[in-house]
């Protein structure tokens, strides 16, 4: 039986296809560990209480809030962050669409928006404005009024 401990635990996290072995306190969230231990600061931390969606990452292909998961829970799961969705050079087709449609202003929500929208596009289902808005309803943007974000995601389908 595993011994309970409030001491730091050593875990191996699979992030963007790479294994990272890190020593973490049980109370550190996945968002904290991504940013502070792994240096993956593309995952943003906004409200820290499960409302804004800025910290969204893919867990086994599904979008989820990294501020509402402890890093120690994530051993054996595949994590993908915005860094993992961005090509070595240039932008992904979805990122290009965001650029083309001016789908960001301050940019704080953008990584979370892109992660959630990627999972939606990966489902390969035809999109309507309604399904895009529903899929993005857990990601808050305080600048754009959402219209250009919805436009960008609609435009990116097919091309991704």
């Amino acid at each position: 039986m595993a011994e309970a401990s409030i001491q730091p635990l050593t875990v191996t996290l699979k992030v963007n296809g790479r294994d990272y072995t890190v020593t973490v306190e049980p109370r550190w969230t996945l968002a904290d560990v991504l940013r502070h231990q792994l240096g993956l600061t593309g995952t943003h931390v906004g409200c820290e209480q499960g409302v804004c969606g800025a910290c969204t990452v893919l867990v086994d292909g599904e979008p989820a809030r990294s501020c509402l998961m402890f890093a120690v829970q994530m051993e054996g799961h595949e994590i993908v962050t915005i860094e993992g969705l961005t090509p070595e050079a240039g932008l992904s087709p979805l990122q290009e669409a965001f650029h083309r449609h001016h789908a960001l202003q301050c940019g704080f929500c953008t990584p979370g928006m892109l992660v959630t929208a990627t999972a939606l596009l990966n489902q390969g289902k035809p999109l309507t404005e309604e399904t895009v808005r529903e899929a993005l309803s857990g990601n808050l943007c305080r600048c754009t009024g959402y219209q250009f974000i919805v436009d960008a995601v609609m435009d990116a389908q097919g091309g991704k």
Binding site: P63, R65, A135, G138
Partner: peptide
């Protein structure tokens, strides 16, 4: 809630 919460 929202899709992100529903996934977990």
């Amino acid at each position: 809630a929202d899709p992100l919460v529903r996934n977990r």
